[in-house]
Design a protein around this nucleic acid. Structure first.
Length: 569
RNA sequence: CGGGGCGUGGCUCAGUUUGGCUAGAGCGCUUCGUUCGGGACGAAGAGGCCGGUGGUUCAAAUCCACUCGCCCCGACCA
């Protein structure tokens, strides 16, 4: 392809709208342009990369026995009513009424639609197992689109669904997809870490996320370098402290103390000269419409996913200031577990390890000293409710943990029968029993892979594509208007195309510096530099984008030399 | 949805505090010339009713009200 005839608008300056490095570079390198918040156009080069990713995904899915199909983006809302997810996902779905007044949604995901299909088309165990997948645009009206293509409202996803007769079959399908995912990400040049994950609104019991460590990640993952334990924050087990040896009745009496205008843990701990870990942080929640007090140590944070799970998946929401005052009798910042009426008390297990805590008194400007569970209040439920921290020990091997931010690029779930039961997708087994199909679902954020790849593969000059995703394998840079040089560049360009390479010729009438900067920015792995200096010696210079390493090839054997260099990349 | 910030040629920004002639710069773009190995130089151009609406005023990019859009932090998140 000739640069002069391509829509590849590179930018010198950092666009004001972008913050994340991948977002900045994708705009600067002419891959994407924003239409409106969270909605992007893919320019020709962006599309080329997208197609590379899709090709890899298709190959690996097909290799594992997946069959590609294409499901509709428009879906009747009633299907979502049946699965029970209309409420859970309602506000994230783009909804519209058609001319008949029927409510539809633009698909944010496709469990409902595929289950509907399978319900109608599959009725015998002989048709199972089945893995179906598609690559398609998804629509999610995100509360806050962010980081360009990393969190957008319209994006391309590969979603696969497995259908099995029994749990063993599901396990087999799941591990196949798991393996396919590892291979896909490896081929995309990504270091992806599989972590045990929460299943969220998808449902099911087992789930893994594939995470790319990145500064602009929105998720946090927990890694143990000793034993390899890797898990999402929402799923990381915090070890319970040892129960105190003695169960003596605490002796120090409960005591009120004035803490004027001191609300936060840091303020109170500082004022009373105690460590934050000696405080009980009391957060008032509304759980399924009822008030509850959630207790964690002052130096810990509540993890709402864990909280919800401890309550059997209940909807949990922090109470607002007014509600807190109504439920506890005290203002925000002075809540405590002592003397609460009609509030369920849910306590984090780490509180079992201490005694004589400080807590709010449910009264303005007042805290309590020497608070003890059992004597001063009674917890209705003990559970692991908090975020794990780097000071916690690995729950598997007891060694040091690492917490890092990451981008989620894939997620696999063992769904079980959640959707097949709700939508009545059943089959007859060999004994004539009528059973719900056992399902799994497997998603890859195809467009997100591109951003994650840039996030992981760039330097100060621009993008550094892995060969597998690069829009072109080679870029040819003629330096200057010398006719002989142009002639040679054309020959090299044609020669490289003839040996089957994807090559970009920078035939623009621009100075060398501009071409070098642009070539570095767009990140094609090999640069072929054709200048008068080298030509005088019948040599052509090659630069490897990633390492910056330069080498020369004899003019006569450039194509072979370049093929060789590409193999070594 | 809560908090903060920003909207001025295609891009990055100045000008707004303290209203005042014809609204600026750099980059990019067009034409001509000189140049040509890491974002060249000179000359001549094109391109903006300053996000929108309403108001205050002799006079509004600038002040006021409303509104739309975008970004960041948080909440939420498959």
């Amino acid at each position: 392809m000739r640069w002069s005839q391509t829509l590849l608008p590179t930018l010198k300056e950092i666009p004001a709208e972008a913050e994340a490095i991948s977002h900045i570079l994708m705009i600067r390198a002419g891959l994407i342009r924003k239409l409106t918040s969270g909605v992007y156009t893919y320019l020709p080069f962006g599309l080329k990369v997208l197609e590379k990713v899709e090709a890899i995904v298709r190959e690996e899915m097909d290799r594992k026995g997946g069959q590609e199909l294409l499901l509709p983006a428009i879906q009747p809302a009633e299907l979502w009513e049946k699965s029970g997810r209309m409420k859970a996902l309602g506000r994230d779905m783009i909804q519209f009424e058609d001319r008949h007044g029927k409510l539809n949604v633009l698909g944010p995901t496709h469990e409902e639609v595929i289950t509907f299909l399978v319900k109608n088309e599959v009725s015998s165990y002989r048709q199972l197992p089945l893995i179906l997948y598609q690559i398609q645009t998804k629509f999610r009206d995100e509360a806050r689109p962010r980081f360009g293509v990393i969190r957008s409202r319209e994006f391309i996803m590969k979603d696969a669904y497995s259908f099995d007769r029994d749990q063993a079959g599901l396990n087999e399908s799941y591990s196949r997809m798991y393996e396919a995912y590892r291979e896909i990400f490896r081929r995309c040049g990504l270091r992806a870490i599989p972590v045990e994950a929460d299943t969220g609104v998808m449902g099911g019991d087992v789930s893994h996320e594939f995470m790319i460590p990145a500064v602009n990640g929105e998720d946090r993952i927990v890694l143990c370098e000793q034993c390899g334990y890797s898990v999402s924050m929402d799923k990381a087990e915090c070890l319970s402290p040892a129960e105190p040896e003695t169960t003596d009745v605490p002796e120090k009496p409960l005591q009120e103390t004035a803490t004027p205008n001191l609300r936060s843990v840091a303020e109170v701990a500082g004022f009373l000269k105690v460590s934050p870990s000696e405080l009980i942080k009391t957060l008032i929640y509304v759980i399924e419409g009822k008030g509850a007090a959630v207790l964690v140590r002052g130096d810990h944070e509540v993890n709402e996913t864990k909280l919800s799970r401890a309550l059997g998946g209940a909807e949990v929401k922090m109470a607002d200031a007014q509600t807190i005052e109504k439920l506890t009798g005290g203002p925000v910042g002075f809540s405590g577990p002592v003397g609460l009426k009609n509030l369920k008390i849910i306590a984090d297990v780490s509180l079992k390890g201490g005694s004589d805590f400080v807590s709010g008194a449910n009264k303005a400007d007042t805290h309590l000293l020497n608070v003890n569970e059992g004597r001063d209040f009674k917890a209705d439920l003990w559970a692991d409710l908090r975020d794990i921290t780097e000071t916690d020990a690995c729950p598997r091997c007891g060694k040091v943990l690492n917490i890092t931010t990451a981008i989620e690029i894939g997620h696999v779930f063992k769904l079980g029968t959640k959707y097949s039961e709700a939508l009545d997708a059943r089959f007859l087994n060999e004994k004539g029993e009528n059973l719900p199909v056992i399902m799994g679902c497997y998603g890859i954020g195809v467009t997100r892979i591109i951003a994650a790849c840039v996030e992981q593969n760039h330097d100060n000059s621009g993008i550094v594509w892995p060969l597998s995703l690069s829009p072109f394998q080679v870029v040819v840079l003629p330096l200057g208007p010398n006719p002989e040089l142009i002639q040679v560049s054309e020959e090299v360009y044609e020669g490289l195309k003839n040996v089957g390479l994807e090559v970009l010729l920078d035939d623009r009438d621009l100075r060398a510096g501009v071409k070098f900067k642009d070539a570095d920015l767009i990140g094609i792995p090999l640069q072929v530099v054709i200048g008068e200096k080298g030509l005088a010696r019948s040599e052509i210079e090659i630069k490897v984008r990633k390492s910056g390493a330069k080498s020369v090839l004899p003019r006569a054997g450039v194509c072979e030399g370049i093929l060789q260099l590409l193999k070594e990349l």
